[in-house]
């Protein structure tokens, strides 16, 4: 119980600091932020922006006001020019965040579906040619940036062969087939590198696990190798897998943002790229805050899951 309270407090502190940082981003802009955001605007617009950013307040009040607006979803609109109503920032977050999350979820699932059997099998075959080969390939794959993989796929699968659409998002509800067709390349582009990371770590962890006395013990019961691998060896290693997942969330988010821009997926990453290029710093603050919050929350979730899954930690807490 105490542990939980402490962790919740920790979480809140981190969230406050992180959002504080994003809320004062515009203060870092060189010169007058308003000039950077809206170089050719009227006095009235300038005053509005100044107001929206609370530039006239001190930093703490500014954060307080920003937080109030952020929490109530009342984030205002992007600045689109004199007399033009910009897009609602909250509206854009509401639309784009679920897409980014879904994209990341697909990547995570596919990654595990491929990496776990691969890692288990190569650990089982440790020291053989096949193991060396797959290790080598994984090492090569680790060195290919997501955007290169994405670009290669675009060239071969879309531009030259027209097998898959090059860009855009189709919702699952409206057309499942198109949905997956549009997401196939983005998801694969991230997954390839992730599989290499997971499979390599799982392999080395399982190789160590397979040295354990309890594996020999399990084997001496006369149960099948398959069972020894999946029941006895993978379980303890799955905790490592979870640790990797936690450490890797940043990579995953980064990958998602990049492919969103490349494939015009209109998720949060695309929104961020768009905001940067159109110098929508008011909106950028909020987008970044959302990403940071997601990152922190996912990490907390992973950590919690870890505690739930490991009977040793669980036991320690009870007893």
């Amino acid at each position: 119980m105490q542990v939980i309270v402490r962790r919740v407090i920790q979480l809140i502190v981190v969230l406050v600091v992180v959002t504080f940082f994003t809320s004062i981003l515009t203060a870092l802009l060189p010169g007058d932020p308003v000039t950077t955001i809206a170089p050719f605007s009227s006095e009235q617009d300038r005053a509005n922006i100044r107001n929206q950013l609370n530039l006239n307040e001190n930093i703490v009040v500014r954060y307080g006001k920003w937080l109030g607006h952020f929490m109530t979803g009342d984030m205002g609109r992007e600045y689109a020019g004199t007399g033009v109503r910009g897009q609602s920032i909250w509206g854009r977050i509401k639309d784009s965040l679920p897409r980014s999350l879904l994209l990341m979820l697909y990547v995570q699932i596919l990654t595990l579906l491929i990496a776990v059997p691969l890692g288990v099998y190569t650990a089982y075959k440790a020291g053989t040619r096949l193991d060396d080969l797959s290790n080598g390939i994984a090492f090569l794959l680790l060195s290919i940036p997501v955007y290169v993989t994405a670009t290669l796929m675009l060239l071969f699968l879309s531009v030259q062969r027209h097998l898959l659409p090059t860009e855009g998002w189709v919702s699952l509800g409206s057309n499942p087939v198109e949905h997956f067709k549009h997401l196939a390349m983005p998801v694969l582009a991230i997954t390839i590198g992730q599989v290499a990371v997971y499979a390599r770590l799982l392999r080395s962890d399982m190789v160590a696990t397979l040295q354990e006395d309890y594996i020999l013990m399990a084997k001496s019961k006369g149960i099948s190798d398959r069972r020894v691998l999946w029941r006895h060896a993978l379980r303890p290693s799955s905790l490592t897998l979870l640790t990797v997942a936690g450490l890797n969330v940043g990579q995953l988010i980064g990958g998602a943002l990049i492919v969103e821009v490349i494939f015009h997926l209109n998720g949060l990453g695309f929104a961020i790229g768009d905001a940067i290029n159109r110098r929508q710093y008011i909106a950028l603050q909020d987008y970044i805050a959302v990403v940071a919050i997601v990152y922190v929350l996912v990490n907390v979730a992973v950590d919690t899951l870890y505690r739930v899954l490991d009977p040793r930690i669980r036991g320690a807490r009870i007893g």
């Binding site: 006395d213 309890y214 020999l216 013990m217 379980r235 303890p236 040793r312």
Partner: peptide, 12 residues
């Protein structure tokens, strides 16, 4: 086995 501390699967 020799060592009961390490010969039982800790997560089963």
């Amino acid at each position: 086995f020799q060592d009961p501390m390490t010969s039982l699967n800790p997560v089963m």
